[in-house]
Amino acid sequence: KKKPLTQEQLEDARRLKAIYEKKKNELGLSQESVADKMGMGQSGVGALFNGINALNAYNAALLAKILKVSVEEFSP
């Protein structure tokens, strides 16, 4: 059984999803295209955005690059 995410991890996910929602049209992104760039399925990206799975440093760095932001913008 997976450990529930901490409040901090949930807040990171909320900020990440908000940045994605704000930038997806400008950058021409969908959850599917983000998933392709990350080498995972769309459901995996959804789980990161919705605070189901915790972000690790690798995925955080990859998402920051895809969204053209710094990791600190969603994970201070």
Rank of each mutant, 00 (worst) to 15 (best):
K1V: 09
K1I: 12
K1F: 12
K2H: 13
K2V: 10
K3A: 10
K3I: 14
K3V: 12
K3H: 13
K3C: 11
P4T: 15
P4E: 14
P4R: 13
P4S: 14
L5F: 06
L5A: 07
T6P: 07
T6L: 06
E8A: 07
E8V: 04
Q9T: 01
Q9D: 05
E11M: 10
E11L: 11
D12A: 09
R14C: 09
R14E: 10
R14Y: 07
R15D: 00
L16C: 07
L16H: 04
L16N: 05
L16D: 05
L16K: 03
K17H: 10
A18W: 07
A18S: 12
A18T: 10
A18V: 08
I19V: 08
I19D: 01
Y20S: 05
Y20W: 13
E21W: 06
E21N: 11
K22D: 08
K22M: 12
K22A: 13
K22F: 06
K23E: 02
K23Y: 02
K24S: 05
K24F: 05
N25V: 13
N25R: 12
N25M: 13
E26T: 11
E26H: 09
L27Y: 05
L27C: 03
G28C: 09
L29D: 07
L29T: 01
L29G: 01
L29M: 05
L29H: 05
S30T: 15
S30C: 10
S30N: 11
Q31W: 15
Q31Y: 15
E32C: 10
E32S: 12
E32A: 13
E32Y: 06
E32M: 11
S33N: 09
S33C: 11
S33R: 13
V34F: 04
V34E: 02
V34G: 01
V34Q: 03
A35P: 03
A35W: 02
A35Q: 03
A35Y: 01
D36E: 15
K37R: 13
M38V: 06
M38R: 03
M38P: 02
G39D: 09
G39K: 11
M40L: 11
M40T: 08
M40W: 04
G41S: 15
G41N: 15
G41V: 13
S43A: 15
S43V: 11
S43T: 12
G44R: 12
G44F: 10
G44E: 15
V45L: 12
V45S: 03
V45D: 07
G46P: 07
G46H: 15
G46E: 15
G46K: 15
A47L: 10
A47T: 07
A47G: 10
L48H: 01
F49M: 13
F49Q: 05
N50C: 07
N50G: 08
N50F: 00
G51D: 06
G51V: 00
G51W: 01
G51Q: 00
I52G: 09
I52S: 12
N53S: 13
N53D: 15
A54F: 03
A54E: 10
A54T: 06
L55Y: 02
L55M: 10
N56F: 02
N56Q: 05
N56D: 14
N56A: 01
N56T: 13
Y58G: 12
N59M: 06
N59D: 10
A60K: 08
A60M: 02
A60P: 02
A60H: 02
A61H: 13
A61V: 09
A61F: 07
A61W: 09
L62C: 11
L63G: 05
A64H: 06
K65D: 14
I66W: 03
I66H: 09
I66G: 07
L67H: 05
K68R: 11
K68Y: 01
V69S: 06
V69R: 04
V69H: 08
S70M: 01
S70H: 10
V71L: 03
E72R: 13
E73N: 08
E73M: 04
E73F: 04
F74L: 06
S75P: 07
S75G: 03
S75F: 00
S75H: 05
P76H: 08
P76E: 06
